[in-house]
Design a protein around this nucleic acid. Structure first.
Length: 560
RNA sequence: UGGGGCGUCGCCAAAUUGGUAAGGCAGCGGCCUUUGGAGCCGCCAUUUGCAGGUUCGAGUCCUGCCGCCCCAACCA
């Protein structure tokens, strides 16, 4: 990953540098991020956002946030707000440049009239099914509509009728007159306008006709004087139509479309349809469930926005299909959190330890470093007393080779506290270990042995009396399949949902972890990074596991 | 199948006008360590889908194959 957030040498930036040198577009750079307000943003959108805003920033241009709200049937104002919140959170600012496609409806209708007057568009009375039947196939040309040769006067009259709401939805459309035999399917007399019944979240019932993407998008770009219209690869077949519309209508500028490959992430799905299905079926809590690849989900999961930007910069921008390993995203998240997250101790699966030679009733306040990577983070006090909790998996009665933790007769260090030696193991009637009896060495206070003796293991711990029990949500990948969307024929992507994607435990945490605000991020020493969920109450935090620490012991143990 | 896009290390991704294969993630060794974390050091493509050709020289040019993805919504 590069030091700054831009790779600076992907094909798009090369192109823009070339354009700047040649003076194309008057030496200006104007990009845009054009979300449709019909769902929440996900990590795939983050790439488009970073590319568009990033490029504008780097070349002294501007990036417009434009809602592509041309389909009132699927869109909703609540997404307009949510999308802005997510983009701001990611760290981008569109300044004055907030636009809505719906604000251009009047101009678009005028351009449609221009096309009609120029004999480039016609009103077609065919039904959707009939148009479909006449589209031809990949190898066969389509059939001309019987209405293709209507006079401009008649078309103008019919279009005015459509606009006035004189015809029912589906009864007529405005189509471009291009070429029904084109090998480029979007050029086969594409629909430009359809009649829609239903209120638009911004224009209400003012309109009865709505423009299609291919007609609307290029005009929106042109109206805003966008210079570089960057979109995903799937639109490459639409570029001839994008250019055709702009050539046949009197637009104020000539934007240029360039396509790049969208982001795919392993172990998740990126389609809005599938994400919505997970929400609707209750497979996840909501769009912002911490397991979702949505920006709101990642925010709640504890991913710092900076880490997402670094991640996007690290994977680059190119034209080939790609699926990035989840591990790469997690590496970016760890890299950020390692530097910024204060450390604290929490025991997720407590095992009681009694330090037999420690005075009953005594409590010591020991110094603990808040962040070894950041001296400015300072130190805090951690209480130590006779009864403690350690992680159950940090003790093994019969330890294998290379297990450096606690075992009968073995000495380990309690981080920032003392060396302890396990002297006895207490079991219940079923033979389960329920308590450890240990002795401590008073000379090792703070964790250093004055005689210089070494211990291999250092354990995190918590003083039982002073600890608070809290809820901790342990997340894993949502899907166990590498590419869930690529399910076998006859099978659904939901079948590869990971049943262990959420596990809730009750943990014991040190005092520093009880008064935290939602969104605060911590490293639980030796375990992973956690963040306080919005579900947290005063003094009653709920923690989400953001990502585990790298665990070379787990790797070693798995190998044997 | 017509059209289009793409094939460089397990996953991403660089490589000025052809000049002799960056980097990141993952992995593997080692050092260091009061987090089995972090950090540090080292290893990890005689080779760019395949086969030919041009050239002193090809990932970059030419020819022919092979493979993957996208397009037949009144969605975007």
């Amino acid at each position: 990953m590069s030091a700054d957030e831009s790779t600076g040498n992907d094909f798009i930036r090369h192109m823009i540098r070339r354009d700047l040198e040649s003076g194309k577009h008057g030496g200006r750079v104007v990009t845009r991020f054009p979300p449709e307000p019909n769902g929440r943003l996900h990590i795939g959108h983050a790439k488009a956002i970073c590319v568009n805003f990033g490029v504008a920033e780097e070349f002294g241009g501007e990036c417009h946030l434009r809602f592509d709200d041309t389909n009132p049937l699927t869109e909703d104002a609540i997404f307009v707000e949510a999308i802005q919140e997510d983009i701001r959170w990611l760290g981008f600012d569109w300044g004055e440049h907030l636009y809505f496609a719906s604000d251009y409806f009047e101009q678009m209708a005028d351009f449609a009239v221009q096309l009609i007057e120029r004999g480039k568009a016609f009103v077609c009375d065919l039904s959707s099914e009939q148009i479909d039947a006449r589209r031809g196939s990949l190898t066969e040309p389509g059939l001309d509509s019987p209405h293709r040769t209507r006079s401009a006067e008649e078309n103008l009259d019919l279009f005015a009728g459509m606009r006035a709401g004189e015809f029912p939805p589906g009864s007529r459309v405005l189509r471009a007159r291009i070429d029904m035999a084109s090998s480029v399917l979007p050029m086969r007399d594409p629909v430009l306008y359809r009649i829609v019944d239903g209120a638009h979240h911004r224009t209400g019932d003012r309109w009865h006709i709505y423009p299609m993407y291919d007609f609307a998008h290029c005009i929106e770009d042109a109206i805003e004087h966008v210079t570089h219209s960057l979109c995903s690869l799937e639109f490459i077949d639409h570029r001839p139509l994008y250019d055709w519309v702009l050539e046949n209508v009197d637009v104020p500028s000539r934007p240029e479309q360039t396509e790049f490959a969208r982001l795919n992430l392993s172990h998740t799905v990126m389609s809005k349809r599938m994400l919505k299905q997970l929400v609707d079926a209750g497979r996840v809590e909501d769009w912002d469930d911490p397991r979702m690849p949505t920006l709101s989900g990642m925010r709640r999961r504890g991913y710092p926005p900076e880490s997402i930007r670094r991640f996007i910069a690290g994977v680059g921008v190119a034209r080939r299909d790609n699926t990035i390993e989840l591990a790469q995203l997690e590496a970016a998240v760890r890299d950020d959190l390692n530097r910024t997250a204060p450390r604290a101790m929490a025991v997720l699966d407590p095992l009681r330890v009694v330090v037999e030679n420690y005075p009953e009733g005594q409590v010591e306040e020991l110094d603990a470093i808040n962040n070894p990577e950041d001296p400015a983070a300072g130190v805090r006090k951690v209480p130590f007393s006779r009864v403690l909790y350690i992680e159950r998996e940090d003790f093994l009665e019969d330890p294998p080779k290379k297990f450096f933790r606690l075992a009968p007769g073995r000495e380990v260090r309690l981080r920032y506290a003392y060396f302890i030696t396990c002297t006895d193991v207490v079991k219940d009637a079923d033979g389960n270990v329920v308590e450890l009896r240990c002795r401590y060495d008073p000379a090792t206070r703070g964790g250093d042995a004055p005689d210089g003796r070494k211990v291999r293991g250092t354990l995190h711990w918590v003083a039982a009396e002073q600890a608070t029990e809290v809820e901790v949500r342990l997340y894993e990948v949502l899907f166990s399949a590498h590419d869930p969307a690529d399910a076998e024929p006859g099978h659904s992507f939901v079948e590869s949902l990971n049943p262990a994607s959420l596990r809730v435990v009750r943990a014991q945490v040190e005092p520093a972890l009880t008064r935290v605000a939602p969104g605060e991020r911590f490293q639980f020493e030796r375990i992973g990074y956690f963040t306080a969920d919005p579900d947290s109450g005063p003094g009653r935090p709920v923690f989400n596991r953001t990502v585990t620490l790298r665990d070379s012991w787990a790797k070693l143990a798995k190998r044997r």
